[in-house]
Amino acid sequence: MWYSINKIIKPDSLKEAYSLQNKTRVLFSGGSYLVAEKNPSIQSLIDINDLVGHGVTASMEGIHIDAGATLQTFLDTVESINSECRLLKGIKYSCPSKQIRNQRTFGGEIGKGRPNSEIMVFLHAVNAELTVIMETEKTVSIRDWNGDGIITKISYFPNQIDGIELERFSVLDSAPALVIVGAIKSGDHFEFSIGGSSGTIQTFSCRIEEWSENKNLAWAKEAVNAFVANHFGSLEYKEKLIATALQRVGETL
């Protein structure tokens, strides 16, 4: 029971939903994060489930994920295209529980913006494009999005990507990763995104011929500043993990 909730609001449009938000009224789609936390200062939920799509369309021109699509719907789509996809396993770990994957939406996952979510690190690596509704609709890169607005669609474009890799280091497969590194090869560039037990997801890119072990070490040194030390690793150790992950994904690409 989420005691503090006294009202479910069903707005007529996303614009209306956007305007209704305040500290005690929040957007609600899948609800897996919100209901788990049961924040007592929230009193009303603005349910946008009927206003967002729930599907995933995939073609070579682009993968388009509706904000209301669940993580599992996306995984099933990827699997139907390529069941051997190595990524599939990696991004599944964003949420090892299929129960929760069946409920958690893409919009919710991005809205939450967990840096230890493999899906988030992946979307940063491919620099997914978000369609966002505020007063007006606009598109914004996930790396640039400031959290304002209601996401309606997430798109990325495999034909611009020559290779994708994801490396994660976690104590157990089911445990949140200490370090997650996503990487793509696109034309003459590598792009890397780094998440994990970190305050934010960071991205780095360089021309392929400039990529080197020293560059990885320098990036790792920079990236680790956003990380936190915990009982499974000091910052010094996490810096090493980031460098190793960068090296591995780069070499595989």
Partner: peptide, 16 residues
């Protein structure tokens, strides 16, 4: 206590 849920206290699950 710091790790009082299964997100932070890691027991072996089926996939581990």
């Amino acid at each position: 206590p710091i790790n009082t849920d299964f997100e932070n206290y890691h027991i072996f699950t089926s996939i581990d």
